[in-house]
C-alpha cells in the first residue's frame, strides 16, 4: 500500500482549472521532490492534500494509506498523520506558540482517544524539538509566527512537524527566503525525522535544497500534471537547462 496515491486529480479554484489529471504514488520511507515553473499547480497540490476548502476537486482521488483524504476534514487529516509546512506561515496574533502547540497535540490525541499530554512531557518534547531546528526558545513565548523572521518562520514549521511527528509531510517551498545557514538547519531537521515509516513530498523551485534533502524521486509538475519523473539527477538537469526543454518535449 502506498503512503500517498493520487489518481487523476483535477482541481479548480473559482472555476479556473489548476490540476488537470495529476497522478503520483509515494511509498513509505521515500522522499519525492516536486519541481516546476511558477503557476504549474505545486502549491495547489500541497493545499489540497492538507484539505484547503478553497479548492474544488472536480475529478480523481487522493488516497493516504489507502483511505481517501477527500472525505476528511483538515484536522482529521492532521490527526491521521498528514502535515503541511506552509510556504507562507500565517501570523496569528494573540495565540501563543505554546498554547497553539499544546492545543494541536491534545486535539490530535483526543481524536485518537488518548489522554492530554502531561505538562512535563510536553515541555520536554518542546525542548528536544527546538534543539533539532535550533529554534530560539524565546520564540515559544511569542504569538504564532508574529515577529518571526522569514527563516524563523520556516524553522518553526519544521519544529511543528517534529512535534507532531507525521507520517506524510508536505514541504511547500520551505527553502524560499532562507539563507544558506537556515537552509542547512531546516534540512538537518527534516533529515533527522526521515525514517522507513514516513514519507516526504518536497516542493521546491531550486535544486540546492535537494543537495541537503536528497530525494529518491524527482517529478516535474507543469500545467497541472506530472510531465516527467526521474532520479535526483533530473533536478541537476533542470538546474542546468531550465524548464523550457522539458515543456517543449511534453508538448511535442
Amino acid at each position: 500500500m502506498y503512503m500517498l496515491e493520487i489518481r487523476n486529480l483535477h482541481a479548480s479554484i473559482d472555476g479556473k482549472p489548476i490540476l488537470k489529471g495529476l497522478n503520483l504514488s509515494v511509498k513509505a520511507g521515500e522522499v519525492h521532490a516536486i519541481m516546476g515553473p511558477n503557476g504549474s499547480g505545486k502549491s495547489t497540490l500541497a493545499s489540497i492534500i492538507a484539505g484547503n476548502e478553497a479548492y474544488e476537486i472536480t475529478e480523481g482521488d487522493v488516497l493516504f494509506q489507502g483511505i481517501s483524504l477527500l472525505d476528511l476534514q483538515p484536522h482529521e487529516r492532521a490527526a491521521a498523520g498528514v502535515f503541511l509546512a506552509f510556504q507562507y506561515p500565517v501570523e496569528i496574533p494573540g495565540v501563543s506558540m505554546m498554547n497553539f502547540m499544546k492545543s494541536a497535540i491534545n486535539e490530535i490525541r483526543a481524536q485518537k482517544g488518548q489522554e492530554p499530554i502531561e505538562a512535563s512531557a510536553f515541555l520536554k518534547l518542546v525542548r528536544e524539538k527546538q534543539a533539532l531546528v535550533e529554534l530560539d526558545a524565546k520564540l515559544a513565548n511569542r504569538s504564532v509566527n508574529q515577529g518571526f523572521s522569514g527563516g524563523e518562520k520556516k524553522r518553526n514549521e519544521v519544529f511543528q512537524m517534529a512535534m507532531l511527528d507525521p507520517k506524510l509531510a508536505v514541504l511547500d517551498e520551505t527553502d524560499s527566503g532562507l539563507d544558506i545557514d537556515a537552509l542547512r538547519i531546516v534540512a538537518q531537521g527534516v533529515n533527522a525525522l526521515r525514517n522507513s515509516q514516513n514519507s516526504f513530498l518536497v516542493i521546491t523551485h531550486y535544486q540546492r535544497l535537494l543537495d541537503y534533502i536528497v530525494p529518491d524521486v524527482v517529478h516535474v509538475l507543469a500545467n497541472g500534471k506530472i510531465i516527467k519523473t526521474g532520479s535526483k539527477d533530473l533536478a541537476l538537469e533542470l538546474e542546468a537547462k531550465g524548464y523550457d526543454w522539458i515543456l517543449e518535449t511534453d508538448q511535442a
Partner: peptide, 19 residues
C-alpha cells in the same frame, strides 16, 4: 489562520474559539 490551525489538527470550532 483558520486553515493553518486546522492543518495542525485543531477542529474548526476549536480553531474559531482560539482565534
Amino acid at each position: 489562520a483558520l486553515f493553518y490551525l486546522q492543518a495542525r489538527g485543531i477542529s474548526k470550532p476549536a480553531a474559531r474559539r482560539l482565534l
